[in-house]
């Protein structure tokens, strides 16, 4: 696993060195590749956007590696992963999430520091539009994506009522930069069975069918390097034993150049298993080209 992870994270860096000679890269405008969601895909922190990750134009390859740390009141989530953007058309992503239950694990009899690990394999294809350049059209950039998730704690997940330790989300995103207003809007519709994004498995005793959940992001550009904004992600509520709430956040993203971005957010996660009103500090570092 270590090796595979290192390989995946090293990939964009190697590519950026190797590809630099063969192909031009990094031709898109600053911040137009978004940051990385906790599931890997390019977008905000919680919701994927229709933009293709990295800064590659339609003649180029782009990509990034990222690390996100979400310090929650009673839990901790760490995510590492990478994104590869191909010709501003296709995005491939990988994320490995570690959800540490800290003392809650002990309270639940799982042991302090009991950790769920989930891998998310993502793919996204841009179907139409250009979020940044088509400023004279109402047409947003539209993309379709899938996120296949694999959780490593099948036995526990079934014990709490989840139906599966694997699942696939499908989403449609529409993203538009309103440049004259320095504002970006995104709306995503996600078909999902995931409980807490899959950390608590897929489907449940209350419901075991796909539900369509909307997600929204709004970002305001303060200057070429700095954006602030918020996101809202509706969530299903499939498990009888643990109520699940919607998520929202307020973020600031800073990109001093095309190789680095830092995102800081306040996240409200609501109830998570036996702990209500969980809020978090989210910090994400992205290195890319």
């Amino acid at each position: 696993m270590r090796i595979r992870q290192a390989a995946i994270i090293g990939l964009p860096i190697l590519l950026s060195a190797g590809v630099a000679q063969a192909l031009e890269y990094g031709g898109r405008l600053l911040l137009t590749g978004g940051v990385n969601t906790i599931e890997g895909a390019a977008g905000g922190g919680l919701t994927p956007w229709a933009v293709i990750g990295g800064y590659g134009t339609r003649d180029q390859i782009g990509g990034n590696a990222f690390f996100s740390h979400v310090e929650i009141d009673d839990y901790r989530l760490e995510v590492r992963g990478a994104v590869l953007g191909l010709f501003d058309r296709v995005e491939l992503s990988f994320a490995e999430q570690r959800f540490d239950t800290r003392q809650v694990g002990a309270a639940l009899g799982l042991g302090a520091g009991f950790t769920f690990r989930q891998e998310v394999f993502g793919a996204k294809i841009r179907l139409a539009g250009d979020a940044v350049l088509d400023q004279d059209l109402w047409m947003p950039q539209i993309a379709f994506g899938v996120e296949h998730k694999r959780n490593n704690r099948g036995a526990i997940l079934r014990a709490i009522g989840a139906r599966d330790d694997e699942g696939t989300d499908y989403y449609l995103s529409a993203t538009k930069l309103f440049l004259a207003q320095s504002t970006l809007l995104n709306a995503t519709l996600r078909a999902t069975k995931a409980n807490q994004a899959g950390i608590l498995g897929f489907g449940g005793d209350r419901r075991d069918s796909y539900r369509i959940q909307p997600e929204f992001s709004l970002a305001y550009l303060l200057n070429r390097h700095l954006a602030i904004g918020g996101e809202y992600r509706f969530k299903p509520n499939n498990l009888g034993i643990a109520k699940e709430d919607d998520w929202w956040d307020l973020f600031v993203a800073w990109a001093p150049n095309k190789h680095l971005s830092l995102t800081l957010a306040y996240v409200d996660l609501g109830n998570i298993v036996i702990r209500d009103r969980q809020s978090a500090t989210y910090l994400s570092l992205q290195v890319g080209f």
Partner: peptide, 19 residues
């Protein structure tokens, strides 16, 4: 930016040119 044009005004011009 160098000539001190406010960011919002910059974006209004860019919005006209981008398409």
């Amino acid at each position: 930016a160098r000539e001190g044009v406010p960011f919002r005004a910059q974006n209004k011009l860019l919005a006209k040119l981008a398409p």
